[in-house]
Design a protein around this nucleic acid. Structure first.
Length: 586
DNA sequence: GCCGTTTTCGGCCCGACTGTTTTCAGTCG
């Protein structure tokens, strides 16, 4: 290989693999933790690790010191890592797969390896079926059965569930919990409450003076297929629909610490515990323990944060991405809310692949309190979506005018288009057709697997077209099936900053694209951001919730989003972009 | 392996639940 390019995700997963293998080997726990923390830090990094490396600034990344920065350097220079190669000679690399099985951790994996010669999933499954595991020390028949069930569960479900596939069901469960007689309060927790794009399982937390009663009702409910743990205060189940859930129950006076613990993230909670420790306190999910052994109890989260002199931190920010420091300094962002949004600038009608007419879509948007809606049907070349020819755009304009006349001034309907970016970076409409539109969104739908440089240049060329106002779902990812295009985001963001084109946060739960990391970076660079539902039906306006979650995770405030601008400012911005000459590369 | 408003060395978060155990280790969040 002459090209040693590795992106942030690939470098991060290399360090996760090292951590897994070291753990099976039985290395010092804090060394392992250090590799994991470095991996998390790289995952949260909004700059390209390649660029940070070239700038010689690797050690400025939190959790990355001399040893790990040297390893990154070797990886990026040579595409290899001697340390990992020596490690895999000692510990078979396929052992790391065993850790994906629930109830199998590093100690069990090492046991299977040393005492039964097992080095991969296939061998483990065969040994379990043959009943060869339960003779090993510390492993009984129950463990053997659990392991077998765990292996089967691995093939049954993908590792993470899209937020949009989990949230509606989780809310049903929550509503049922809240209706229980002995319950005081109940909330979503975990990555659902933090609005991560994908979740591992559904975390629920409740307060009650009778936790046992809640637990019994929860684990015995008809939608539960299997109970994998059931204790006094915590239980774990799998539902018939394949989703897993955990429920914690606290007494009301301990709900504050409980909610913080169960909401996470793990890294955020860890930081808080470190802070407690520095003050001689000990923070757990039950209380704060004073040095003299007495307890401080908290019925709300705000009280816990106040102990450390911090503002209450919105759940979407709890990722250890600087929110602790910001909360200490009283400079947390004033996050955008649904009430701030006045425009949806990316929607479809029956003119292409939408299911409702322009008037129906506009009425539904008005009903949701929007002041502006842009109808942005597909351009001609996206044949599967019934894209419009330039002639049809003229006819569509007449229908928009009719709908506008019918609806009066309560909502403004813009004529736009979602224009294909063709494989060479040119657009699917001629400039004179684009010039007639109120708003132009340019999107990639095909050729997403082009090489990095090619697909990046394609997007850059589209951004340099002066008629383009917004880049729709920039990466083209589809959760959980398809990775986005291999874009050079440094170049994409620089071009957006130069041309003033807006980047979209597409709110569809399968997209959430831009993601939270790049949306935050875009805002820091002064790039306008547009948050849109891409609705093909009025019911999909509700998807804005997912996009808002992403925007809030990106620390966005109302002024970062063009959708919060008053209609006159928005249309002035759009028309100011018309006919601007392309900005040439400096 | 990382890190520093007690430290450049010696620390590094906390507790519930399960299974295989005679008092605890492993896993998980």
């Amino acid at each position: 290989m002459y090209n040693h390019f590795m992106n942030n995700r690939e470098v991060a997963s290399t360090f996760r693999l090292i951590a897994d293998l070291l753990e099976i080997k039985g290395e010092n726990l804090y060394k392992i933790l250090a590799y994991r923390r470095a991996a998390e830090s790289l995952t949260n990094l909004s700059r390209d690790v390649q660029e940070v490396w070239q700038a010689g600034e690797l050690e400025q990344i939190p959790g990355i010191g001399k040893a790990i920065s040297e390893k990154i350097d070797e990886l990026l220079r040579t595409g290899r890592l001697g340390f990992l190669e020596r490690l895999t000679e000692e510990v078979p690399i396929s052992l790391a797969d065993l850790l994906r099985i629930s109830d199998v951790g590093p100690k069990k994996a090492a046991l299977f390896w040393h005492q039964a010669g097992i080095t991969n999933l296939t061998e483990l499954e065969a040994a379990a079926r043959a009943g060869k595991l339960h003779n090993l020390p510390g492993v009984g028949e129950k463990s053997e059965a659990r392991i077998l069930a765990g292996i089967e569960a691995l093939s049954r479900r993908s590792t993470r569930t899209p937020l949009g596939a989990a949230l509606p069901f989780a809310r049903q469960v929550l509503a049922w919990l809240r209706a229980l007689p002995s319950i005081q309060s109940a909330d979503l927790a975990g990555s659902l409450r933090r609005m991560r794009a994908t979740i591992g399982d559904i975390d629920l937390v409740a307060s009650s003076h009778d936790p046992g009663l809640i637990m019994k009702a929860f684990t015995e409910h008809g939608w539960v297929r299997h109970v994998s743990a059931a204790g006094e205060t915590k239980s774990s189940v799998e539902f018939h629909n394949g989703l897993r859930a955990q429920l914690w129950v606290y007494t009301p006076e301990r709900y504050g610490t409980g909610l913080i613990h169960t909401t996470g993230s793990k890294e955020h909670a860890l930081r808080l515990r470190e802070m407690a420790q520095k003050r001689g306190l000990s923070l757990s999910d039950r209380s704060i323990l004073n040095p003299d052994g007495s307890e401080q109890l908290f019925d709300s989260e705000a009280g816990v944060y106040a102990v450390f002199g911090m503002e209450w931190v919105p759940p979407e920010l709890r990722e250890d991405r600087g929110e602790i420091q910001a909360a200490l300094e009283g400079r947390l962002p004033h996050l955008v809310t649904q009430a701030d949004l006045t425009a949806d600038l990316h929607t479809h009608s029956t003119w292409s692949d939408g299911q409702l007419t322009i008037r129906e879509m506009a009425e539904a948007a008005r009903q949701r309190g929007l002041k502006v809606i842009a109808i942005t049907d597909h351009s001609a070349s996206l044949g599967v979506a019934g894209g419009l020819s330039p002639d049809e755009l003229v006819a569509q304009r007449r229908e928009i005018q009719a709908a506008q006349a019918y609806l009066g001034e309560s909502i403004q309907i813009l004529q736009g288009a979602e224009v294909e970016i063709l494989s060479n970076g040119s657009l699917d409409y001629r400039d004179e057709d684009l010039a007639k539109l109120d708003i132009v969104i340019a999107s990639l739908h095909s050729g997403l697997r082009q090489p990095r440089q090619q697909v990046t240049e394609r997007l850059v060329r589209a951004m340099r077209n002066p008629h383009v106002d917004v880049i729709g779902h920039p990466s083209g990812r589809l959760i959980p099936d398809r990775e986005g295009a291999d874009l050079d985001m440094e170049v994409v963001l620089d071009t957006a900053a130069q041309t003033g084109v807006a980047l979209e946060i597409n709110a569809h739960p399968a997209r959430l694209d831009l993601d939270d990391i790049y949306a935050r970076r875009s805002a820091e660079m002064g790039i306008p951001i547009s948050i849109n539902t891409d609705a093909h039906h009025s019911s999909e306006f509700d998807n804005i919730e997912y996009g808002l979650g992403t925007a809030r995770r990106a620390w966005l405030e109302p002024q970062h989003l063009i959708n919060t601008w008053p209609a006159d400012r928005l249309t002035a911005w759009l028309s100011s972009r018309e006919g601007q000459p392309p900005v040439e590369r400096a």
